[in-house]
Design a protein around this nucleic acid. Structure first.
Lengths: 138, 138
DNA sequence: ATCGCTGCAAAAATTTTGCAGGTAA
DNA sequence: TTACCTGCAAAATTTTTGCAGCGAT
């Protein structure tokens, strides 16, 4: 946690009550959360929803969180470890929305080929898997 | 186009003016479009935005369109050819939002391994590439 | 003649913004 | 002290829904 607040301080941003609480929630949940879920997880709703949105923008700009879009429209945010680029993928249950983090990634040589063939630079990808989890199969 | 209206008829849905127009727009545009873009492309705004949304829901349920989420939050829709499952991916320019359709796909053997390792069934994936297109590189 | 579809308007849900006051550094 | 932050309220977006009337089959 202290490295998180350190990253804020380094950019001369302030460690306020709401911000520390939001970072704790994100740290405690290893899965992407919507702004509303973050608000709900906050102790006694002690922060405005607008503040959650503003915090997510700041943290995203600083590279401290990543934004994901699963099958519904809502944006979800997940903490990025320091020194990590945060690039990984998820396996999401279409029934209960349970999430498993996935180690596998799209093969780099194929991505390079795609970039080259189309003349695109700085190519990245977003990849998410969907299916029915063990608990939802009966 | 006639196969499209045929698919509607087979499910005893009606071929109305707005629906035919929407299908023509989707047919004319080989890229995913937002509901608002579809409305804008419609001749003399001759259909309500709510109707576009309702049509997209119907067509999605029937498997005639696929829904995509690129880097912004907006949902985009693309026509699925008959007999085709519509599964493919895109390479999107982060600057001008230009889109190229991609033939490559995530390797099936890796996906099978992911499904098996986690006990998930009916696993699919969503995969999109992002980068800077040739025109936007200077 | 049905039943489905449409426009319009209102509502719901998500995200952004303005402003005046409060607080970390 | 001085930026930066926050809550509150209002607005902007995107999407959904109710309802009465219209229209395809």
């Amino acid at each position: 946690m202290s490295d998180l607040t350190g990253r804020l301080r380094r950019e001369s941003r302030k460690i306020t009550g709401p911000r520390a609480a939001i970072l704790e929630i994100l740290h405690a949940h290893p899965h992407p959360l919507t702004s509303r879920e973050i608000l709900a997880a906050l102790p006694k709703d002690h922060c405005d929803l607008a503040t959650v949105y503003r915090s997510m923008h700041l943290l995203e700009t600083m590279g401290m969180v990543k934004r994901y879009h699963f099958h519904d429209g809502a944006a979800r945010f997940e903490l990025v470890g320091e020194g990590d680029d945060g690039h990984h993928h998820h396996l999401v249950c279409v029934n209960c929305s349970g999430v498993v983090e996935i180690a596998e990634c799209f093969p780099d040589e194929i991505q390079k080929r795609i970039a080259q063939k189309n003349g695109y630079k700085n190519v990245t990808h977003k990849l998410e898997f969907f299916g029915t989890c063990p608990d939802c199969q009966r």
